[in-house]
Structures are given as structure tokens and as C-alpha cells.
């Protein structure tokens, strides 16, 4: 259940940015979660509610945008959707492919209302 630790970090980042911007109403926090990070979006949203409880982020919505995985083949340069971490190139069957998308874990933006 490492989602709680991640949720606390997200709340920290959102708080810091909100303070810097001089706002106290954060309506939404947009986060990117790569589908290969192992983070479960539902658990992350649930954890965020716990992390934000009794803070000024209590009513903020955590908006999770899942980033689909993409792998690339070093031989035929094909880009394809891997089967999780199984990156077998559909073009030439090589297993020596690299994952180029799907490991993201970023706070992208926060939606704020001027107070």
C-alpha cells in the first residue's frame, strides 16, 4: 500500500505550489500515473483523501490521468504497446526492447480559485 506515501507527496507538492501562488482554494490536482508504475488509481484517490483530511486540500479533487505504456524496439525501431513489462517486439520478436512511456509519476498542474 505505497499509494499513501505517494499521496502524501502529492499533497506536499500541491501545498507548496498553492502557498507560492498565494491561494487557499485548490479545486483539483492533475497527476500523471504511468500504467507500469504499479500505482492503483483508486487506491491513490482513496489515499489522497486520507492525506488531505483536515488540511486546506480536503475538498480538492485528485484527477488521475493514466499514461499508457509504450515500448520501442532497438532493431526495427517499431513502437508498440507492451504486455506489461513483457516487451517482445511484434515486428521482429526481439526481447531487447525498452519501455519509453508508462513509468510517469508527476504532478502536472493544480487548479486554483483566487481567494
Amino acid at each position: 500500500m505505497h499509494e499513501l506515501g505517494i499521496a502524501i507527496r502529492i499533497a506536499d507538492i500541491a501545498s507548496r505550489v498553492a502557498q507560492r501562488e498565494g491561494v487557499i482554494h485548490v479545486t483539483g490536482i492533475n497527476v500523471q500515473v504511468g500504467e507500469l508504475t504499479g500505482i492503483v488509481p483508486d487506491l491513490l484517490r482513496f489515499s489522497f483523501k486520507i492525506a488531505a483530511k483536515d488540511t486546506f486540500l480536503e475538498n480538492s479533487e485528485l484527477i488521475v490521468h493514466t499514461i499508457p505504456a509504450i515500448a520501442t524496439c532497438p532493431i526495427c525501431e517499431l513502437q508498440f504497446t507492451p504486455d506489461g513489462f513483457l516487451t517482445i517486439c511484434p515486428g521482429c520478436d526481439t526481447t531487447e526492447c525498452s519501455i519509453i512511456k508508462g513509468m510517469e509519476l508527476n504532478v502536472v498542474s493544480i487548479a486554483v480559485v483566487e481567494s
Partner: peptide, 28 residues
């Protein structure tokens, strides 16, 4: 129009979006 197509709620008056783009694990 990020909010309009991703999320059903309407954009509130005086709402603005602050770009952050920070890795959640940056501190770690």
C-alpha cells in the same frame, strides 16, 4: 481545453490552472 474534455464539471469563475510538472518522487 484540458478541463472541458477530461472532466464533466465546468470550469469555475476565477479558476486558473497552475502548471507544476514535478515528479512525485523528486524529493526521494
Amino acid at each position: 481545453h484540458h478541463y472541458q474534455h477530461c472532466h464533466p464539471h465546468e470550469q469555475l469563475k476565477d479558476q486558473r490552472e497552475v502548471m507544476v510538472t514535478e515528479n512525485v518522487l523528486k524529493h526521494n
